[in-house]
Structures are given as C-alpha cells and as structure tokens.
C-alpha cells in the first residue's frame, strides 16, 4: 500500500466522520433552517466522497455524478427554504 492510498483512506474516513457529525446536527437541529443547512453540508460532503472514490478506482465517469449532485443539491436546499418561507408568512 503506497503513501498515496493511505492518504486517500484517511481522507475517506475523515469525510465519513463529517457525514456522521452532520447527521447529528440534522437530527437535533432546533429549527427547520438548521436542518436545511445540515442538508447543504451533507451534499458537499458527498461530493467530496465521490471525488475521492474517483481517485481510488481511477474510473473517470464518476465525475459526472458529482456535477449532477452539485446542481441538485443547490436546487433542493433553495426549494426547501422557499417552501418554509411561504408557509409561515
């Protein structure tokens, strides 16, 4: 196992830990905007995980997944925020 692969494994583990901590905030978040924020961070984490997985396998096709995920994560959080703004006013 080369130094490069050890680094990638460590990065993957730390990103998984980030995902877990964000899930805690998603569960206990006192208000709904907190949960949207946590959702935004989860999407960013998953994009990072996909990038590192692409380097692990050497398969270049996974980058397209990251592009689509970045688009849909933005749309999801904005839609959710607008929905909350409209129902409370």
């Amino acid at each position: 196992m080369s130094l490069f692969q050890i680094t990638l494994t460590i990065a993957m583990a730390v990103l998984s830990l980030c995902l877990l901590l964000t899930a805690i905030r998603f569960a206990i978040g006192p208000t709904l905007p907190d949960r949207i924020t946590a959702f935004d961070l989860i999407v960013a984490n998953v994009i990072g995980i996909i990038a590192i997985y692409t380097e692990f396998t050497g398969n270049e096709d996974f980058i397209d997944v990251a592009i689509i995920l970045s688009v849909f994560g933005f749309l999801g959080s904005v839609t959710f925020a607008y929905y909350i703004m409209k129902i409370n006013v």
Binding site: I63, A66, S70
Partner: peptide, 28 residues
C-alpha cells in the same frame, strides 16, 4: 474542465443558497 465547471458552480451557488436560507430564518 469538468472539475473547473463544478468549482465555478459551487462558488456561485453556495452564497446564493446561504442568502436564501438566512433570509428564511430572518422572516421566521
């Protein structure tokens, strides 16, 4: 090129999403 496209997109959309969410929080 794909990587630069993703980075540009993230740096455009992240502040917009943050603004929308915090505006929602102010209104609520």
């Amino acid at each position: 090129l794909k990587v630069l496209a993703i980075i540009t997109f993230i740096f455009i959309t992240a502040p917009v999403a943050a603004h929308v969410i915090s505006r929602t929080a102010v209104r609520n």
